[in-house]
Simulated scan of single mutants.
Amino acid sequence: MARIAYADPAQPDLRAAAETIRNSRKKIGHLHRMLLHAPPIAEGWIAMFDAVRWNSTLSGKIRELMMCRVAAINDATYEWEAHAPIALQEGATQAQLDTLHDWQASDAFDATERAALAYCDAMTLSVHVPESVAAEVRALFPERQLVELTVTIAGYNCVSRVLEALAIKGTDALPDA
């Protein structure tokens, strides 16, 4: 059970933010129902993550592999369950998802994916990225995509931390809205 009750999107002061979420996601799920407790944050969240997911030039496969790797590192089951199916739709293989927890020992990833995963690990596990890891991704990704990769990893670390801190598991029943 989540640490606090989910917000009611039908509340008058939450309707505008709820509509922003519906316009983007078609429904209001567990995470967004929780974010509605802070309407400006909920609306800003949607704007940022819409940009990360839909307005990035980063490949969908790389984007979703990064999201899943962050979820794996942070043990964020809800995040993993949301993004693993999308990763497969975007071209990741089941073998990649099966070995993502120990990607360094797997031959399922190409050089670009390995560089991005090393960057993801450095950002997620130690925050400070070693120059050798940064140099690898800089050589493989144009500047815009390097920023997009960085923000994707950082953003989904934020997602997992919100999910886990508030114990949002996606198994709680949501009231009708």
Rank of each mutant, 00 (worst) to 15 (best):
P130C: 12
G91T: 02
A82D: 09
A118H: 09
E43F: 00
A87T: 05
L140M: 14
V151F: 09
L14T: 09
G91F: 04
A118T: 06
A10P: 00
A134P: 00
A51V: 06
D13V: 01
I168P: 02
R144C: 00
A139K: 14
T150L: 01
I168S: 05
M66E: 03
R33A: 15
I41D: 05
K27E: 06
P12C: 02
K169Y: 01
I41V: 15
I86V: 15
L117Q: 11
K26Y: 06
E19F: 00
I62P: 00
C120G: 01
R69W: 03
A71W: 03
Y119T: 09
A154V: 14
Y78M: 09
A108S: 14
L58W: 12
K27N: 09
T112W: 00
K169V: 04
Y156F: 15
R25S: 08
Y78Q: 05
R25M: 09
A38E: 13
S132D: 15
R138F: 02
R114K: 14
A38W: 13
I73V: 14
T77Y: 05
T124P: 05
A82M: 13
I4E: 05
T20H: 08
I73N: 09
A17W: 02
R144A: 10
A105M: 04
I4R: 15
W103G: 01
L100S: 04
P9R: 03
P142W: 07
V151C: 03
M66N: 03
A115V: 08
L166W: 15
S56L: 08
H30V: 07
L58N: 11
H83E: 04
I21N: 05
L65I: 10
A139Y: 11
R144P: 00
K27F: 11
A177E: 10
